[in-house]
């Protein structure tokens, strides 16, 4: 059964690695629903957070292929339930629509969104949350006309008490030493 999985890839910070990672999905015709790349807590190590809608078996196989990539240190996969995750959305509306009624103000208050910038012409609203929440905000704002809308890729951290990457790096160093 297909479901949403969050794949986390830790790698060296090298040029072209994003391509090397995504071709593993392309080749298997797996669509990437969301992708975020950023520096991890450990210097020099990049972290990819990839959301896919797939069966666990296929996800498991693609993760083991990702781990084969020479510059990849480790790849994990999790279900949504196993992680705390968040996305960020920005909405641009006409400032005029805020004058007309207090509905937008109510929406912002109720959903815990905030206003980033107000100019004479437009207002930028920011909301963090799961996709369903940021989507609902979009739907609610649509009646006032949304000039622009953008949603970030997902970021996620595990519910584990330990930092898996530092554990892994310790084990890896020991293994490399034993190879001498």
């Amino acid at each position: 059964m297909k479901q949403e999985f969050i794949i986390t890839v830790y790698s060296e910070n090298h040029i072209g690695l994003l391509n090397r990672i995504t071709i593993n999905f392309t080749r298997r015709k797996i669509n990437i629903e969301s992708l975020t790349v950023s520096a991890s807590a450990i210097q020099g190590i990049s972290k990819f957070t990839i959301v896919v809608n797939e069966t666990e078996d296929r996800v498991k196989k693609v993760v083991s292929q990702l781990e084969k990539v020479v510059d990849v240190l480790k790849a994990f996969y999790h279900t949504n339930e196993e992680m705390v995750y968040q996305e960020l959305a920005l909405y641009k509306v006409q400032t005029e629509s805020l004058y007309e009624s207090d509905q937008i103000e109510q929406l912002v208050r109720k959903s815990g969104a905030r206003i980033l910038e107000i100019t004479r012409e437009f207002t930028v609203i920011e909301k963090t949350g799961h996709k369903t929440e940021t989507q609902k905000m979009f739907d609610d704002l649509s009646q006032f006309g949304v000039l622009q809308f953008i949603r970030s890729g997902r970021i996620a951290i595990t519910r584990d008490p330990i930092e898996r990457l530092s554990e892994f790096l310790k084990e890896r160093d020991a293994l490399l030493e034993s190879m001498d």
Binding site: D71, L175, L176, S178
Partner: peptide, 12 residues
């Protein structure tokens, strides 16, 4: 080159 941190050529 005899080792690369992100690449284990052969697992024990």
């Amino acid at each position: 080159c005899t080792k690369i941190r992100s690449y284990i050529s052969e697992h024990p």
